[in-house]
Design a protein around this nucleic acid. Structure first.
Lengths: 338, 338
DNA sequence: ATCAGTTGGTTAAGCGCTTAACCCAACTAA
DNA sequence: TTAGTTGGGTTAAGCGCTTAACCAACTGAT
């Protein structure tokens, strides 16, 4: 790999001169020399050693990205958008799949700080919210880099971008009610997942606004995995009065559908369904799924803007951005006569 | 962030002493001093500045990973396995989604080399194989880092890990034939995708071994996207003699299914289907999809082993590893009477 | 008494790049 | 004539860490 030293030698100048011209800083280097240096750099196919730049400037043009599970399509979509937008701004992405483990998230943040990332985007795992506040706080403050949480609310003094889970669940529930449903099962995320609580709240609010009594027996707790949905399916369907299911994500609904297939129940006739996430596969299943879209592009845009603002101004702002949900109406809801 | 200098001052030793003990090198530092230094490091929550380590040792414990599209579940699975296995070995992952662009792959490699990654895992895009050999070669040789291609054959002098596409397509085709199918449509990948050619070859070989004439009118060209499958669907289904479809990936088959839903054709009765990839959603659709599993875990294991061998020995080996396919038999094939 | 070997470290150079401070010759302007 | 400016760079220190070479004091054997 060619270095500035090499270029300097060929151009008969000091490496300082090379540095300033290759970085396009205003300096007293003559036009001719500038051109010569740039030409030599091009000829040698020079590219800076980023470790050296990082060491001396204390910025790395790298950001860390931590997601709970990249095989979850929603997180994959976020990841793709983030990587591409950061790349367009000249930033590289140090990627970690935390496998839904708080310990892994913590290690990842430490390692990223150690590597001198300029900032961190953390899509918190479920475990994140199960940890002690003190530990969460320690994680956030490690190396006090700019950090923004994505897809989560939090009580910590840190920026986050989330989407309006209350409103999302409200919209979805209202839609079911509009079709005449009153016995609506709700598959929530585990008690301590923050987004899960908000979604439950939206569900309850919609019931209340429609004067439908909330019934806790209709609330089932999953963990956002397909398997947890499959496991809950028989319990949910046990009550013949239940005519609809609202799920805190599509994946659990797919689990319900899978269980139904395996047990020969015609699930699409049996219940109406609405999910969360706008999973691409919701569109191609037997009956396309009505779902709440989390507007990943908007979320990522806000996240990148926020992070970039911190990086360029050098100030650590604490902002909370909430993007509005959008109900994608497809065919998994049918009318009920009361 | 505390530095070795800080530790050295507190322990009344030189930073060189700190360096050797924190790196557990054998040295002439007394047990007592060693313990003291380590304790201070722990108290200060010291973590090395990786940029400095990289600069001086010329290794970064970072590897670059480039995939064509992280929202494709197969690539997501590979990515997850890679990141976790590398993490377990102390390596971090610099991630790039090339968005199926050769230019992006090329830039990514350059950038990674510039950042001093120790090695690169490239899951080549489709465009990769459409580029000139000279350009592909240039990409591979950039900065001559250890590099292994994953999920591809190649004519270049570089290691790769792939799975046996010929055998995979052969198995799938033979399965269809076993069920009595003789008019089997094949959705291939674009002509220049190397894996696509091998899959076609396996399909043809199976036909030949069963004395079924190859008919080029039954071969359709997609680009591995869901949309391309949807676009091809009407053409494929036009010929009433066609009783089965083998697709070079599940996604295109999902596209066919989607088109069928939208056009009210009962696709699962109309044709038998086999895909490639063992996409998780193949299991939860109306009729679970028979598919060829690419054994991502085995592929990743081989890839990591290969790369780690190069990293530890420092030698650039050129090995070609082919993992055996596995046919996942589900319900999307039905018997045909001839 | 001398010397080799051991113990317990230190020194210094270097990795590639950045940046503030400096230098000198030639040219203006009063 | 001289002070001041401008053009065209150079020097040197420093970012945090690594590593080979060195050194001083002590111990034990001859």
């Amino acid at each position: 790999m060619p270095t500035m030293k090499e270029i300097a030698k060929r151009a008969n100048v000091s490496v300082a001169a090379v540095s300033v011209v290759l970085n396009n800083k205003k300096s007293r280097i003559s036009k001719a020399k500038k051109a010569e240096i740039k030409q030599i750099a091009k000829d040698l196919n020079y590219h800076p050693n980023i470790a050296a730049v990082t060491l001396s400037k204390n910025i790395s043009l790298t950001i860390g990205l931590i997601v709970p599970d990249i095989t979850n399509p929603f997180f994959a979509t976020l990841t793709r958008l983030i990587e591409q937008q950061l790349g367009a701004q000249g930033y590289s992405t140090l990627f970690v799949d935390s496998n839904n483990s708080f310990a892994a998230e913590s290690d990842a943040v430490q390692n990223m700080v150690s590597r001198g990332v300029d900032g961190i985007i953390l899509v918190p795992s479920n475990e994140f919210f199960l940890s002690k506040k003190k530990e969460r706080k320690a994680l956030i403050e490690k190396g006090d880099k700019p950090i923004v949480l994505l897809n989560a609310y939090t009580d910590l003094k840190v920026s986050y971008v989330n989407f309006d889970n209350v409103q999302g669940a409200y919209l979805a529930t209202q839609e079911l009610i509009n079709y005449g449903h009153t016995h609506i099962a709700f598959i929530r995320g585990k008690a301590n997942f923050v987004n899960a609580a908000e979604r439950l709240a939206g569900y309850r609010q919609a019931l209340k606004d429609n004067r439908i009594a909330f019934n806790n027996d209709l609330v089932f707790e999953g963990d956002y995995t397909l398997d947890s949905g499959a496991k809950l399916a028989p319990k949910i369907l046990e009550d013949p009065a239940t005519t609809a299911i609202l799920s805190a994500n599509d994946l659990m609904l797919f689990g319900v559908i899978k269980w139904a297939k395996q047990n020969f129940v015609d699930i699409f006739s049996r219940v109406s369904m609405v999910g969360f996430d706008n999973d691409p596969y919701g569109e191609i299943i037997e009956v396309p799924l009505t779902t709440v879209d989390q507007q990943p592009l908007e979320m990522v845009n806000e996240t990148i803007d926020l992070l970039l603002e911190m990086l360029t101004t050098g100030e650590k702002v604490v902002q909370h951005l909430i993007v509005k949900p959008k109900l994608i109406k497809r065919s998994s809801i049918h009318k009920i006569e009361n």
